[in-house]
Amino acid sequence: MSSSNTLDQPLSIIEPHGGLGVALIATLRRDLTLMLRRRSEVMNPLAFFALVITLFPLGLSPDPELLATVAPGLLWVAALLATLLSLDSLFRADFEDGSLEQLLLAPQPLAAMVLAKVVVHWLLTGLPLALMAPVLGLMLGLPAGSHLILMLALALGSASLSLVGAIGAALTVGLARGGVLLSLLVLPLYIPVLIFGAGAVQAALLGSGVAAHLAILGALLALAVMLAPWAIAAALRISVNG
């Protein structure tokens, strides 16, 4: 008995603190706190989003009618690029200070912990982008009726973007200059979300049903939630050990 007791000891120390729920909440709280302390990282994608949207009327034409027809695509492409920019920092700081290694060593399943990290990323990148989009839509002459759909589609779609993007971020976090490579890996995978996201807004503009688009965005999200955490976890293990 006594010999097995010494073996069991580390486990019994971990167990009271180590339920999955506790660990998930701790990760969520930690990442949220960290991100909120680095406000500029939260603000930068939003400023980028607004700036890119400002460039289009200057490059195309200030004609509101023309802008309104291309607005769904512009808003989605700009939001997609803003998400892409924010991805590089998703695991970078944790990788550099070694806390990512601790996460890998933790007894909780890595896929679940990673999901918590992605949720924080979405809360502070995708959701603010979605909330800000109607303002920019207004500036592009998007009719008021489509604003709610734009927001909904962006909120749903950006969650998939965060999940899929995190795979790319996890694969490139160990590389010194992974930025361009990251966009090369991730952008092709973003295309379905872009098509259905922009399609939802377009459908709202035309007055046809948007339910199908939103449903497909939801389906893409469900698929991403189911599969992406495993890929992210595998990718992180490669990056940390490599």
Partner: peptide, 17 residues
């Protein structure tokens, strides 16, 4: 991605994923 890793094994596994 395969070419970006310094270690061949990491590059192989990353490319597989």
């Amino acid at each position: 991605l395969r070419g970006a890793f310094a270690s061949r094994d990491s590059g192989s596994r990353a490319a597989s994923v």
